[in-house]
Deep mutational scan, measured.
Amino acid sequence: TFELKGKVGKVVKIAEDHYLVEVEGDKWIAYSDEKLSLGDRVMVVDVDGLKLKVKRIP
């Protein structure tokens, strides 16, 4: 999972307290300090167990 840091993915689902992002064909639970929208491109900035911390990228 640490090899996911720096990888780019996209938001595929928005849940009440987390996001579902697809990175390299796999779906992961993710969270972010900013509000994300469906389809946003994101970069993995940290890995916390099986959850990814992501940030939006242009």
Score class of each variant (00 low, 15 high):
52 L>Y: 02
17 D>Y: 11
31 Y>C: 05
56 R>A: 05
12 V>D: 11
29 I>F: 08
10 K>A: 14
29 I>L: 09
36 L>Y: 13
18 H>Y: 14
5 K>H: 11
8 V>T: 08
56 R>L: 05
57 I>M: 13
52 L>K: 01
58 P>E: 06
37 S>M: 08
31 Y>T: 06
56 R>M: 09
54 V>W: 02
11 V>I: 12
8 V>R: 03
51 K>Y: 12
34 E>N: 05
27 K>H: 09
5 K>M: 15
38 L>D: 14
17 D>T: 08
23 V>G: 01
56 R>P: 05
47 V>I: 06
27 K>L: 07
36 L>C: 08
57 I>F: 06
50 L>S: 10
12 V>P: 00
39 G>T: 10
44 V>H: 01
32 S>H: 10
38 L>R: 05
38 L>E: 07
16 E>C: 07
26 D>E: 09
2 F>R: 05
37 S>C: 09
31 Y>Q: 09
43 M>L: 09
38 L>K: 07
20 L>C: 06
35 K>S: 08
2 F>K: 15
9 G>M: 02
6 G>D: 06
30 A>W: 00
51 K>E: 04
26 D>C: 11
24 E>S: 03
21 V>L: 05
12 V>F: 13
43 M>T: 12
12 V>M: 13
26 D>A: 14
39 G>C: 08
8 V>H: 10
4 L>Q: 03
1 T>P: 15
26 D>L: 14
22 E>F: 09
4 L>I: 07
22 E>C: 05
2 F>G: 15
2 F>D: 15
8 V>K: 07
46 D>H: 03
15 A>C: 07
46 D>M: 03
32 S>P: 05
27 K>S: 09
32 S>Y: 04
1 T>R: 11
14 I>N: 08
41 R>Y: 13
35 K>P: 06
49 G>H: 09
3 E>H: 03
13 K>C: 07
43 M>A: 04
39 G>W: 14
18 H>W: 12
32 S>K: 15
43 M>C: 11
51 K>I: 08
16 E>F: 14
37 S>R: 08
58 P>T: 13
5 K>Y: 15
48 D>V: 13
40 D>L: 11
42 V>N: 01
50 L>Y: 12
26 D>H: 15
52 L>F: 03
14 I>D: 04
42 V>H: 01
23 V>F: 02
12 V>R: 13
19 Y>A: 10
18 H>C: 08
13 K>A: 06
21 V>Y: 01
53 K>C: 05
35 K>E: 07
57 I>R: 04
35 K>M: 08
6 G>Y: 01
3 E>C: 04
41 R>F: 10
10 K>E: 14
20 L>G: 06
24 E>Y: 02
57 I>V: 06
53 K>H: 10
44 V>W: 01
25 G>Q: 13
24 E>K: 03
41 R>N: 08
53 K>S: 09
14 I>F: 09
8 V>D: 13
9 G>H: 00
36 L>I: 12
23 V>I: 13
27 K>G: 07
38 L>T: 12
15 A>T: 08
35 K>F: 09
15 A>D: 13
35 K>Y: 10
32 S>F: 03
30 A>H: 00
46 D>W: 03
14 I>G: 07
17 D>V: 07
6 G>A: 01
48 D>P: 02
42 V>F: 06
52 L>G: 01
19 Y>C: 08
58 P>M: 08
30 A>N: 01
6 G>M: 01
2 F>N: 15
38 L>M: 07
37 S>G: 09
30 A>M: 08
3 E>P: 15
44 V>M: 02
17 D>Q: 12
30 A>D: 00
55 K>N: 13
19 Y>P: 04
41 R>A: 08
49 G>I: 08
38 L>Y: 10
47 V>A: 04
44 V>T: 02
23 V>C: 04
36 L>A: 05
19 Y>R: 03
49 G>K: 10
4 L>W: 02
21 V>H: 00
32 S>G: 08
54 V>A: 02
5 K>F: 15
25 G>M: 09
20 L>R: 05
51 K>N: 04
29 I>P: 05
15 A>N: 08
38 L>W: 07
55 K>V: 12
52 L>D: 00
8 V>N: 06
17 D>L: 12
15 A>G: 13
51 K>R: 12
10 K>G: 07
36 L>K: 01
25 G>T: 08
4 L>N: 01
31 Y>W: 10
51 K>M: 12
2 F>H: 15
2 F>Y: 04
18 H>I: 14
24 E>T: 03
20 L>P: 01
7 K>I: 01
26 D>I: 07
36 L>Q: 09
46 D>E: 06
54 V>I: 09
6 G>Q: 01
43 M>Q: 07
42 V>A: 13
9 G>W: 01
28 W>G: 02
32 S>I: 14
6 G>W: 02
4 L>E: 05
43 M>D: 06
27 K>F: 10
33 D>T: 12
50 L>D: 04
22 E>P: 01
14 I>P: 12
33 D>M: 14
53 K>T: 10
7 K>C: 04
47 V>S: 02
2 F>V: 15
40 D>H: 05
34 E>W: 12
26 D>M: 13
49 G>T: 09
11 V>H: 00
15 A>M: 07
35 K>N: 10
40 D>G: 09
56 R>Y: 05
37 S>V: 13
21 V>N: 00
17 D>A: 07
55 K>L: 15
27 K>I: 07
11 V>E: 00
8 V>A: 04
47 V>N: 02
42 V>W: 01
55 K>D: 12
34 E>L: 09
10 K>H: 11
7 K>Y: 03
32 S>W: 06
13 K>D: 06
33 D>K: 10
30 A>P: 00
49 G>E: 06
35 K>T: 06
53 K>L: 13
55 K>W: 11
15 A>H: 08
12 V>I: 08
36 L>M: 11
19 Y>G: 10
34 E>S: 08
32 S>V: 11
31 Y>F: 11
39 G>Q: 12
1 T>M: 15
32 S>D: 11
24 E>V: 04
56 R>D: 03
6 G>S: 01
54 V>T: 04
8 V>E: 15
26 D>N: 13
2 F>C: 15
41 R>P: 13
21 V>A: 09
24 E>N: 02
56 R>T: 07
3 E>I: 02
